[in-house]
């Protein structure tokens, strides 16, 4: 089990190195996309700045808390797509029957697929979150450590949801539309204060669209650490990962090859 995990981590690290050097080949494009994304995300600081110059707190959050959920969500999304960029393209690959080469290799199929691609603009999301968090929170080693940890847990939750929705392609064909919608729901829910949600919406963000586990619970933990809540967060992440893995395996049984000859460089 441990050996297996170590092997998979090594595979992810190799893909990361390879994808990064491939992206760096087009340095100009890499920089434009990264800074473009940082600028793009910054527009929302303006929105919240205007709102908070008219009101002190929204849904129990001040400006700082909103910026923290923004920074965690952004960095988590960025981190997820830097390491597992193909998780966003999975439905397309399934629909076109492009998984053959992955099935033949002696590696875990799911990890091999999702880690073999990256999204360049995701670096902008990652840096944006890191910079924003450092500006609003200052340098507090414990907070920063927690922040980095929550970026990882958030990235795992986002990647899980991306895989699950994309895996639907095994059952319904093209799942691109539903994937973009669910991703949009997940990200949007995670960047607004927890206090504005109540009743049914609150139930949703803690269950089927787990935005609360990406940003809302982490901000509670950064403000005041609670071991039970922390364990709940970790348990939720592990549960999502397990479910995702089993769901993908179940879907994979229905895979039909497109008989395409693909060069995987």
């Amino acid at each position: 089990m441990l050996m297996e995990a170590k092997k998979n981590l090594r595979l992810i690290a190799m893909y990361f190195k390879f994808n990064l050097s491939a992206a760096m080949e087009y340095r100009g494009s890499f920089l434009i996309q990264t800074f473009g994304m940082i600028l793009n995300n910054s527009a929302f600081i303006y929105f919240w700045w205007i709102l908070f110059s008219n009101i002190d707190s929204i849904g129990g959050y001040g400006f700082r808390e909103v910026m923290i959920i923004w920074s965690i969500s952004s960095s988590a999304y960025g981190l997820g797509l830097i390491f597992f960029g193909n998780s966003i393209k999975l439905s397309n690959m399934i629909a076109k029957g492009e998984l053959d080469s992955y099935l033949l290799q002696p590696k875990d199929v799911l990890i091999n697929i999702i880690a073999s691609g990256t999204i360049v603009s995701a670096w902008g999301d990652l840096f944006y979150g890191l910079i924003l968090f450092t500006i609003v929170n200052g340098f507090n080693p414990i907070h920063t450590l927690l922040f980095l940890l929550f970026c990882v847990t958030g990235a795992l939750v986002i990647t899980s949801i991306l895989i699950i929705t994309n895996t639907l392609a095994f059952f319904i064909g093209d799942a691109q539309g539903i994937t973009s919608l669910i991703t949009e729901f997940l990200i949007t829910f995670s960047i607004y204060p927890e206090g504005i949600y109540s009743g049914f919406t609150k139930l949703i963000i803690f269950t089927i669209i787990p935005a609360a586990f990406i940003s809302h619970i982490p901000v509670r933990l950064i403000n005041s650490f609670n071991p039970q809540l922390f364990l709940l967060l970790l348990a939720a992440v592990v549960a999502w990962l397990l479910f995702t893995y089993l769901f993908f395996k179940w879907g994979l049984k229905r895979y039909e090859s497109g008989n395409l000859i693909v060069n995987k460089l």
């Binding site: 434009i32 600028l39 910054s42 527009a43 303006y46 929105f47």
Partner: peptide, 15 residues
């Protein structure tokens, strides 16, 4: 690579 220009423009309309 001109996509970043639309990101900026759309955010100017947002704000």
């Amino acid at each position: 690579e001109n996509t970043a220009l639309t990101w900026i423009y759309s955010k100017l309309v947002f704000t």
